[in-house]
Design a binder for these strands. Structure first.
Length: 297
DNA sequence: CTCACATCCTGGATGC
DNA sequence: TGCATCCAGGATGTGA
């Protein structure tokens, strides 16, 4: 579930259950995910009260009463499964929640949080590209995971001028530059493709061409900054995107995938009014890029 | 420094 | 049905 809108959706789903709750028991089912769990992981969590649940880029940050922060990254396939004490598995699904205890979610449930309030929150991650760490709350922006992250695209600190600055001098393809978390934090493959299409910009264009003082560069960076904000806002409002993997097990109700204009739409007509192009797929830096070569220039 | 690429891991879809 | 192959939302470390 891993781009910014999906992580934000998870945060909003978990917050009502976790914020203010006390962790009375934590289970750790294996020594590592993508990386080893930190030393004394269980002991540093059990007994802590959760004071807040924040998000930075694609990271979830659980603020603990001990003064530490539990940092969690969902990788490609990480998700949370929430059950309440009186939940016999028949409760209706709620946005951002994953209820069904399928074989897959049991087999790949690596961490379980039990709260004093009677909730059981399982972390399920088949591919184990996710990870967890404990970092100090004071100066947590200086933690290695967060230190080099770029601007938060939904914050007030992001606009066309900032976009021009972070792309200045880059000879990388625009698509690759936007995926670079050091420049803008939180974009992934889907929303980069979608934002570029909305802005009418080619993923193959040299990123640095959006910088500079020409009217064209200004116009392009304006369009892209707006497209990035808009697509992320719409996706967050839709509860993120639920993709086809683990379809039977996936209890997510995010529905932004129905609003994709180019992502995973190879061969479809370009949805731009008056454009006669067809959505193409091209591999860039080892990953699929979807775009319309006619209206994205 | 910047960029392209392989790599970690598992499961699903597709093709023979 | 079985098996091989390819693909997937991410990010890091390497080597050029």
């Amino acid at each position: 579930m891993p781009e910014l809108p999906e992580v934000e959706t998870v945060r909003r789903g978990l917050a009502p259950v976790l914020v203010g709750a006390k962790l009375i028991r934590v289970e750790q089912r294996r020594p590592d995910l993508r990386f080893p769990f930190p030393a004394d992981f269980i002991a540093r969590l059990q007994g802590q009260r959760i004071e807040a649940l924040d998000r930075r880029a694609k990271y979830l940050l659980m603020r603990l009463s001990s003064g530490e922060t539990l940092l969690m990254h969902l990788g490609m396939s990480g998700r949370f499964l929430i059950e309440t004490a009186d939940d016999s598995g028949k409760n209706p699904q709620k946005p951002g929640y994953f209820y069904q205890n399928t074989d897959l979610s049991v087999k790949h449930e690596h961490v379980v949080f039990h709260t004093e309030e009677g909730h059981r929150i399982g972390y399920v991650d088949p591919r184990r590209f996710g990870f967890m760490d404990l970092i100090p709350q004071d100066g947590c922006d200086e933690a290695p995971w967060l230190r080099d992250l770029g601007v938060e695209p939904l914050s007030n600190h992001f606009d066309a001028v900032v976009l021009q600055r972070v792309l200045a001098g880059s000879k990388a393809p625009l698509k690759s530059a936007l995926l670079d978390q050091k420049r803008i934090a939180g974009l992934g493959n889907i929303y980069v493709c979608e934002a570029l299409h909305r802005a009418g910009l080619s993923p193959l264009r040299v990123a640095g061409t959006l910088s500079g003082t020409s009217a064209k560069a200004r116009q392009r960076s304006d369009a892209l900054a707006l497209a990035i904000r808009t697509v992320l806002q719409e996706a967050v409002a839709a509860g993120g995107s639920s993709l086809k993997d683990f379809a039977a097990a996936d209890g997510s109700l995010g529905y932004f995938q129905h609003a994709f204009r180019v992502y995973d739409q190879e061969g479809a007509a370009c949805p731009v009014q008056g454009c006669s192009g067809v959505v193409e797929r091209q591999v860039q830096a080892g990953r699929s890029t979807f775009y319309c070569a006619r209206c994205q220039t």
